[in-house]
Amino acid sequence: MEIFGVPLNLLLSQVMLGLINGSFYAMLSLGLCIIFGMLDIVNFAHGAMYMMGAFFTWMLGHYLGIGYWPSLILAPLLVGVIAIVIERVLVRHLYDLHHIYGLLLTFGLVLVIVGIFRGFYSVSGKPYPIPEALTGVTNIGFMYMPTYRLWVLGASIVVCFGTWLLIERTRLGATLRAAIERPDLVATFGINVPRMITLTFAFGSALAALSGVLAAPIYPVNPLMGESIIVVVFAVVVIGGLGSIIGSIIGGFVLGTLEGLTKVYYPEASHISIFIVMMIVLLVTRSGIAGK
């Protein structure tokens, strides 16, 4: 069976591969969206957090012999601690200023962080092995899928919707949403809003780092890996609607799939398909699909 001249099996395979890329887009745009919603900061350094997540995973293995599974916890924790320092020392001074200052600061941070890693490790990719339990392929009916990629897809769905549940369906999430709307009033309830903001920045950054850990066995670990993906992730956040959690998650998976399908039908356009969608969405809705 063919659809528009493409065999169904090939099409489904590309959908699956697109979903894998979409997993990274969804997790990264989710973190970016949480940070933008709470801090009102356009965090250009999000890609650097992703890169550090992958690099720390490699470093934990290379220098300390710590494997993939502990790194899933340790690397995001390390990046979370770095994010706390960045927020406390630098970012918090910009909350009352125009967005451009946040963007410039975080852009500068990218240059510094990437520069440090380039200085020590150059730009050559570091290989990271797939954990033994996730090697090989799995038959999913219409194709054989590398087991590790299935794991990435499953893990990102769990993390993304777990985070959505946390923010939209728990008391902690209600407090967070209220603090976004009225930080002054929420502070009068006895809630330490500045600490909440710091932890939110750390959590969003840790999500990026977790994506980096998941990416380490798939993509070469190098200091530039965050720069190439962050531009696409910004487009995903804009399409989903700035500040919309669910928009970012669904946008990530849908646009990853769209990119995969474009590779089948018109490969030359695969790298720009998401940006074309972004232009159309902005022209039609102004605030993204799920934006307010």
């Binding site: 709307e181 002054d184 009033l185 009068t188 500045p194």
Partner: peptide
């Protein structure tokens, strides 16, 4: 800071009520 003042038993009802619509 405001969150520590609240722990002294003080609370504030703003003029526009401060009810969160969502």
């Amino acid at each position: 800071p405001p969150h520590k003042i609240a722990k002294l038993g003080l609370a504030y009802c703003p003029e526009e009520r401060g009810i969160f619509a969502d």
